[in-house]
Design a protein around this nucleic acid. Structure first.
Lengths: 195, 195
DNA sequence: TTTGATAATGAACATTCGTTCAGATAACTT
DNA sequence: AAGTTATCTGAACGAATGTTCATTATCAAA
């Protein structure tokens, strides 16, 4: 046997990335073998190398793709209004976007250390530019007098950590709906930065 | 060669745990081999099995030991006062304790999935009992009327996520001292739960 | 229908992995 | 000083690792 009936790179490529994401998130990058990914896709290990240079590239593609999606989705959000309205948009957007992508979010926080220095720096820069979006809002609110913060950078990191923390406990169909969670976290975030 | 001069299980045992903690935190549990740990200690791989049943036990010991330390240290803190004073103690304690143990904290958040189900459940129970300490404070404050929270469980998780987030960016000798960080986070936490 | 590009196999590669164990040496006990 | 116990070595085990490659089957174009 060689090429399979109905096989197509437009299909196999995305499936490899999807299965890799799932397995990396579940067991960790180092704990997952190329053969496991191949088996999940329904293919032999050698075939993976038609789609990725090596194992690390597979991870880098997932992480970089995620950060690009995040920044693009945020850029597509409405932009006007005062600092308070913009902060509310950010909080709700962050929770929604991250809950929708629990697997790759998990990866982004856990597997950065498996990257080479150059890849690491690249992802880190993307993350910093996302953080800067929130910090700009906090600075604006500070200037408007609606926020009172001793340190906007720290507040940025504190809020993002708090919001991303939702991913560690939220379960679909649990006690609380996404909307309720959004509401409660927005309430806390608003008060935490309030003047 | 066999037994080394000056060798003692009181020395080698702790050193193995220390090096394992360092390496696991730096590269991830699955990415570190028993031979790497042994080399860091200055011993052959086989010698590790005088001190641990297998690789997973090494991880479990670190994680369980950390949670025990955490709960014991919190239990040793002063206990009286109103909810606000108790919350302040919790916030400052949490930041200090976690900053002092960055490596094992990192491990505790990253490597739970490398545990078997029974070990996982055990660690998870310890963590939940730590969370309950904070939730009790929030409930008391709610009853006193000094806190206003739609959901004390969510607020518990949100605050812990925010506080533990310090570990992801704090660097000794950086722009801010530990005391300043403690101060700023206490300010935000206080406001976030305020009535 | 023939032909060339595409997609996959499956075997092989040198390493490395966690773990075991008989044998050797140092430290402690008497 | 002799005997016992504690500590470690070094080699070995089979299994699994990431990656390469000659070969083959299918698809798309002529």
């Amino acid at each position: 046997m060689a090429r399979k009936t109905g096989s197509h790179s437009d299909i196999t490529g995305p499936r490899i990335r999807a299965e890799a994401q799932r397995l990396f998130a579940r067991h960790g990058f180092a704990a997952v073998s190329m053969r496991q990914i191949a088996a999940a896709v329904g293919v032999q290990a050698g075939a993976l190398y038609l789609y990725t240079a090596d194992k690390e590239s597979l991870l880098v593609d997932l992480l970089k793709g995620h950060m690009d999606d995040l920044l693009a989705a945020w850029a597509a959000q409405p932009r006007g209004g005062g600092a308070l309205a913009r902060l509310e948009r950010f909080v709700r957007f962050h929770i929604r976007f991250h809950l929708d992508r629990a697997e790759v979010v998990f990866l982004s926080y856990m597997e950065l250390r498996n990257l080479g220095p150059e890849n690491f720096a690249q992802i880190e820069a993307l993350r910093r530019s996302y953080e800067n979006e929130l910090e700009a809002i906090l600075k604006a609110g500070q200037a408007e007098g609606v926020f009172a913060l001793p340190d906007t950078k720290l507040a940025t990191l504190a809020i993002i950590a708090m919001l991303t923390g939702v991913n560690t406990w939220f379960r679909e169909g649990g006690r609380l709906s996404r909307d309720t969670v959004e509401e409660i976290y927005w309430d806390m975030a608003r008060k935490a930065v309030a003047a």
